[in-house]
Nucleic acid binder design. Structure first.
Length: 154
DNA sequence: CCCTGATTCGC
DNA sequence: GCGAATCAGG
């Protein structure tokens, strides 16, 4: 990164506007590390860090046990809230397909489809076989003949 | 996993 | 001086 006067000015401007280091980096085509590193060297006002290091382990800890309460340090607002439009998004009713975590009927297959916890998760919609909780296809996966099942685990 | 900023340290 | 790596937290 060539820190020309212009580049430094841009960094200062974006920093002053309260953008995140990563955002500044994206806008300037550099890494956030470059941004925060340069900002540090320029002695730009530090942002409220998400972390707090106890780098005073050895000396300061013993003779200077400052219990300093964290200063609020409000995050600077980039722009006087130029809210575009509060568009009240009225969503259409969800598709009448199969609701998550709910089988289509008491007689349908219990085989889970998809990742539990995701909107896509559902159960197989095929009819279950007799007393079994799964349809033909999934029962064949769920129930393995004892003789065929040997070297599969471990 | 994504994100945040700060510090460290080889270059 | 630079910034990737790393840390530490949400």
């Amino acid at each position: 990164m060539d820190w020309s006067a212009e580049a430094i000015e841009q960094l200062r401007a974006l920093w002053a506007e309260g953008h995140s280091t990563a955002e500044i980096g994206r806008r300037m085509g550099i890494s956030k590390n470059a941004v925060v590193g340069k900002a540090h060297r320029l002695h730009l006002p530090a942002r409220p860090s998400p972390i707090q290091r106890e780098q005073s382990a050895a000396g300061a800890a013993s003779d200077a046990p400052r219990p300093i309460a964290a200063v609020p340090a409000p995050r600077p607002v980039p722009v006087p809230a130029p809210r575009p439009a509060p568009v009240p998004v009225v969503r259409a009713a969800p598709p009448a397909v199969v609701r998550p975590f709910q089988r289509s009927s008491a007689r349908s297959c219990c085989w889970p489809i998809g990742e539990p916890g995701t909107p896509e998760f559902r159960f197989c919609t095929s009819e279950a076989m007799g007393a079994k909780p799964y349809c033909l296809e999934h029962a064949s996966i769920a129930y393995v003949k004892a003789r065929d099942r040997r070297e599969d685990a471990a």
